[in-house]
């Protein structure tokens, strides 16, 4: 399903990152950087993630000099069970709230829903936020954080941070031009250490459908950016689109997971992952470079493995989802 928007603009964004992301090549694009540890003055990892989200919301409110009442709707999601980071963040704000979950594709889902509210004039301003925390994800999905079992080459590293995107009907430099809702795809991958292979077909399908619906060629966009496929998932996606649809996206395609960190020097294996991985790259680096005019049209495709460890233990393969959102510089 592809929707075109005439009236949805990104008023501004605010990005918060942890120390690993601060050591990465895109550090200069982030608004608030934590350098010391991953607790950020809190007692537990879970509370630390709530703090990140609150810093993102406070950050954008301060940056735009607005009040909580000026925001009609807050949409947020994260990786914690019951999207707890978002829920516990939202209790401290006097803003109507929608909690959403599409794992690492959450920012895309949030933008889709937010854009619909703004386009239909039911909301003037919608704030979309998402977060992830490396240690929370390790504890919840893998082993205790201090255990540190050897990782596979194809494993990815959950990014730490939070991002807030303020959508508005007021004209600004970057607008959301269209979006395509993806389908849940499962091509039988069961390896939890190879999320790139799990998610590549979902990204491939939504990119193909978006281009077909809008009758565009890949080179219409300056960049097509998937969320967190990692270095191997990137190759799998290119191969998938070529084999299945004879579609070559290699000239302007990249993956946020391979851009957030210095993969050679940092201990991130195949690259970054987590909802905030694509969030930080898209709304730190890409958005700010769009303001500068480096990119004019960008298709962002946050990717998510929507799985439950319980189903994985019950030998089910892993479903995945991706949505495509077209960002455009307003001339």
């Amino acid at each position: 399903m592809t929707t075109k928007y005439n009236n949805v603009y990104i008023e501004d964004t605010y990005t918060v990152c942890g120390n690993y992301e601060n050591d990465g090549p895109l550090s200069e694009y982030f608004d608030l950087k934590h350098e010391k540890d991953l607790y950020f003055g809190e007692k537990t990892w879970e509370k630390a993630e709530v703090k990140l989200l609150k810093e993102a919301v406070d950050g954008i409110i301060d940056k735009k000099k607005i009040e909580e009442e000026d925001i009609d709707l807050l949409i947020s999601g994260d990786l914690q069970n019951q999207i707890a980071a978002s829920d516990y963040m939202a209790r401290d704000y006097n803003i109507p709230f929608l909690g959403i979950f599409e794992a690492c594709a959450t920012s895309g889902e949030g933008l889709l829903i937010g854009s619909t509210f703004v386009e239909s004039k039911n909301a003037k301003r919608v704030l979309v936020t998402t977060s992830s925390h490396n240690m929370v994800a390790e504890k919840q999905f893998r082993n205790p954080t201090e255990y540190g079992a050897p990782k596979h080459k194809t494993a990815t590293f959950t990014a730490t941070g939070a991002v807030a995107i303020l959508l508005s009907n007021k004209k600004s430099k970057v607008r959301i031009e269209s979006s395509t809702v993806g389908k849940v795809i499962d091509l039988g991958t069961t390896d939890v250490n190879h999320m790139g292979a799990v998610m590549a077909p979902a990204a491939g399908e939504v990119i193909y459908n978006h281009l077909k619906d809008t009758k565009r060629k890949p080179d219409y966009y300056d960049l097509i950016l998937t969320g967190d496929l990692g270095i191997y998932g990137k190759d799998i996606l290119k191969d998938y689109l070529m084999t299945n649809y004879n579609l070559d996206i290699s000239s302007n395609y990249n993956d946020c997971g391979t851009m957030l960190y210095d993969i050679q020097k940092q201990p991130v294996f195949a690259g970054g992952s987590g909802p905030v991985c694509s969030g930080l790259v898209n709304f730190g680096y890409i958005y700010k470079e769009m303001l500068q005019g480096k990119f004019k049209k960008v298709l962002i495709v946050p990717t998510g493995a929507v799985f439950s460890p319980t189903f994985t233990f019950q030998k089910e393969s892993i479903p995945s989802i991706a949505n495509a959102i077209s960002l455009e510089v307003v001339e």
């Binding site: 194809t154 091509l187 039988g188 190879h194 292979a197 799998i236 998938y240």
Partner: peptide, 14 residues
Amino acid sequence: MNKEKYKEIVSKNT
């Protein structure tokens, strides 16, 4: 694409 064919693509790029 069927699962077998996709498995081939994955193992080629892993």
